[in-house]
Design a protein around this nucleic acid. Structure first.
Lengths: 214, 214
DNA sequence: GTCTATAAATAGATAGAC
DNA sequence: GTCTATCTATTTATAGAC
């Protein structure tokens, strides 16, 4: 894993990374074979072990790169001089766009959660924490300024992020259900998802209580 | 896989099922070895192949049993003579209780989603669809009677169910984050989660628009 | 129903030529 | 940097005794 490989190797390395992403997403870490990555990336298996010390290191590189990209985008928004409710709207837009641009990463993320994060090092855990810190930080900002009410920070975070992740992640299962056809679970485009999540955030964080609860 | 094994075999069979559940939850289908299930269940490996035709069939049995249990509980509530908003509150209570009683099933479910449901047959897909149909059916009931507004059925469903699944499923990762400690992502007990989700459902489905949107 | 022993296939990883 | 060939370990699954 040279920090700066020769120019003609870049294509090979990134082709390995791209193919491995697809394979890990489709089959999981254990279900993915290095043989298959090599065949599909049209490189020799030994080339993979030239660029990466192990199958696990290849996997970790993919996870870290993706977490870094998303975390940086979100933190850039949180740093902007905007009121908290506008920031949250923009965070939601960016989250939806990030997921839709890298849908292949969702299965990897879900399996990582299922594995209890045992393959995540301090660096990757810090990046995940950064996403939570950014979203819940903007909500806390709004709570302080009075535009949002006070709410359990983790539940607030998951109320916004989890529906997005699960709705997008379940698209293949929903497509399979459609073939068995007892009832269709409809899909939704990006704009619809963004508008829905922004509406949810607004209603859930709205300070004035509309109904019966105290 | 005898439909009705002899009495003294029941203990063995259910011990295999219980141990296999834990193993599949902890390591995924590919990551779980039949050897390890046998060792931990204190049965011989050949016994597993006596009771189940294959590793895959053992896995499918576990998935189907759990889906059946949850689906039946939810449908019993939907059939009760209650107003839709009360039904939804009870569905949420039951969902939280079902998840908390069978936390080991969450990783299995997440990985199944990540796999695109390729291991799910028509029967299992129908059971999943049943959960969606029950929740969104109660919401549609409320929409017709005017206590709920009209909303994208799948997004409504995932807005309620996804935060629960993700919040509970991420507990181990959040515990790991705590050890690295840059920021703590707090947990919540069952009552808090139930109250939160009921509040979310109420606010999101509330017909009168409180804020700026149309 | 339960065991021992083993077949048969496949995996991750490496040696070494070019 | 890239390849061929192979080592070593592990896996699912089965045969056959008791």
């Amino acid at each position: 894993m040279p920090a700066r490989p020769a120019a003609h190797a870049m294509g090979t390395r990134s082709r390995i990374l791209a193919t491995a992403s697809e394979e890990f997403a489709a089959s999981g870490f254990e279900g993915t074979t290095v043989d298959r990555i090599a065949r599909r990336a049209k490189v020799n298996k030994a080339m993979i072990y030239y660029h990466f010390p192990s199958k696990r290191a290849l996997y970790t590189t993919i996870v870290r790169d993706r977490f870094t990209a998303i975390t940086e985008k979100l933190q850039a928004i949180a740093a902007q001089p905007l009121p908290p409710d506008r920031k949250l709207d923009r965070l939601i837009e960016t989250l939806v766009r990030s997921i839709d641009e890298a849908m292949h990463f969702l299965p990897i993320f879900l399996r990582e959660i299922a594995d209890g994060g045992v393959h995540l090092g301090a660096e990757e855990l810090a990046l995940i924490t950064g996403v939570f810190a950014t979203v819940s930080g903007v909500i806390a900002e709004g709570t302080r300024s009075g535009v949002f009410r006070s709410i359990h920070p983790a539940l607030a975070h998951f109320t916004i992020v989890a529906p997005l992740l699960m709705f997008r992640a379940t698209a293949p299962v929903r497509a399979r259900i459609k073939t068995v056809r007892r009832l269709e679970i409809p899909d939704a485009d990006s704009a619809t998802v963004v508008a829905h999540l922004q509406m949810v955030a607004r209603r859930v964080l709205m300070p004035t209580e509309p109904g019966r609860e105290g």
